[in-house]
Simulated scan of single mutants.
Amino acid sequence: MVALTGFVVCACSYGVMRSLGVFFVTWQDYFSVSAAQTGLIQSIITGVLNLEAPIAGALSNKFGCRVVVMAGGVISSAGFVLSLWATSLFHLYITVGFLTGFGYSLSLITTMATIGRYFTTQRLRANSFASIGNSIVSFAFPPLFQYLMDEYTWRGALLLIGGIVLQVVGFGALSGFLSKCSGSVIDIRLLTEPRFLLFCVAVFLFGFGRFVPNIYIVPRARAFGVEEYPSAFLLSILAIGDIIGRALVGLLPEWPRFRRADQYAMNIFLMGVVTLFAPLAKTYVTMAVYSACYGLLMGGCVPLLYSAIAEIGGANRMSSALGIIMFLRGAGNLAGPPFSGEPFS
């Protein structure tokens, strides 16, 4: 039940978040704004999710993890529902960005920290299973969201997405392990350890560029003349690769000279190499190939990241290490998309 709850929480948070790219062209046209301004929504939601990680830990310590996960589900759902009355892009910054991002932080960070403490010998496999939830729905949601937008307008689509996200509340209520977890206490002594500091820098840079392809691959395809549904399906192709990557990485053995942190470093290095060739993808086929390759590598890096955090920070300091790492990754998430959107505009 521990990993299953993680599966659902990841699906309703990262899975939905990574599928919002299908709305961006519509929002650009509706509000008459630039790609960079629209991309800031994704930047805010991912940034807030990670930047609020220490607060999520403190609240779970005071009120219990079950309550915090359920509250996160309600708040993130409310962010989408309140977007029904949006009259400007700034309104979406507040609702979809800050409000939903904060709700996601409460539910996701609390759940993943608990998985890190709960599992000892099968941690990578548990993280792989939990995180694969967002990959599976990332395959299904982009065309679904496009359909909902066509049938009910983007406002109606966001209202229905709010109902999907609300499922987190039910799983939070049913998960007995959440009532037993202890809250996060940030151990700042980690910041005096050179290895951990170097890892922090790597995670910040990873966060800076991680979601850029998810945000701009659909608008870029549209700019090259690709129709709406095939453009949206590029996110589904990326998600297919992501699913395979997350599934395969759970089978990796742990070698004494090539541990989880080393495997994580190799994975993000290859992500960078693949992205260097992204500007050459100017046809739908080459865009699809890039989406598949990037998705495969991105899927592998997420379970490895959580396992590397426990390895470098120590399982007994998992909550502290997770809070610090997610905060720094959030800072990168906040800066990356709008920075990359300027040349696209």
Rank of each mutant, 00 (worst) to 15 (best):
P194V: 04
V168K: 08
T120K: 14
A126H: 11
E151C: 11
S345R: 14
S291K: 01
I161E: 00
F31Q: 09
F269W: 10
F344K: 06
L160P: 00
R257E: 12
L197C: 11
A232I: 01
A53V: 05
F139V: 03
F7W: 15
L108I: 10
T26E: 14
Y104P: 04
V33Q: 08
G209D: 09
S138Q: 12
F98A: 11
R66S: 07
A281L: 06
A3T: 15
N214V: 11
S135H: 01
V22C: 00
P338C: 07
D187H: 02
G300N: 01
L205Q: 11
Y93K: 05
P337F: 00
I268K: 08
S131A: 11
C181G: 06
I41P: 08
F24C: 07
L20A: 09
F258Y: 13
L40W: 10
Y284Q: 12
V289I: 14
L252D: 10
V67R: 15
S291I: 00
G39M: 02
G245A: 04
H91K: 06
Q37P: 09
A56K: 05
L108N: 10
L144S: 12
L148G: 03
Q42G: 13
G209Q: 09
F98E: 06
V201C: 13
I44F: 07
I164V: 11
R317I: 02
L89K: 02
S179G: 14
T46E: 14
R246M: 02
V274A: 10
Y152V: 06
L197S: 07
L305C: 03
A130C: 10
F31N: 10
I217Q: 09
R260W: 15
I41H: 08
I188S: 15
C10G: 15
F196Y: 02
L304P: 07
R18L: 11
P343W: 05
V289K: 13
Q42S: 14
T110I: 04
V273A: 13
S345C: 09
P253D: 11
A36H: 03
V48G: 03
G47N: 05
T121K: 15
I309V: 01
L190S: 00
Y216C: 05
F277P: 11
L51W: 07
A36L: 01
F139C: 05
T120P: 13
Y229T: 15
V249A: 01
A292Q: 04
M271K: 09
Q42V: 13
A86R: 00
A278E: 12
V69H: 07
V274G: 07
Q42R: 11
L280D: 13
I325G: 07
M17Q: 13
C12P: 07
R210C: 15
M271I: 11
N267P: 13
V203T: 09
P256E: 06
A173H: 04
G299N: 03
T286E: 14
C10M: 15
F224C: 12
L280S: 15
F23G: 11
S32R: 14
V67P: 11
A292F: 08
F145P: 05
L166D: 09
P303G: 03
C10T: 14
S319W: 03
L49S: 03
I188D: 15
L124D: 03
R189W: 02
M70H: 06
S182N: 10
L59R: 06
F102T: 01
F177C: 14
G73V: 00
V68S: 12
Y14W: 13
A157L: 05
I115T: 02
G101L: 05
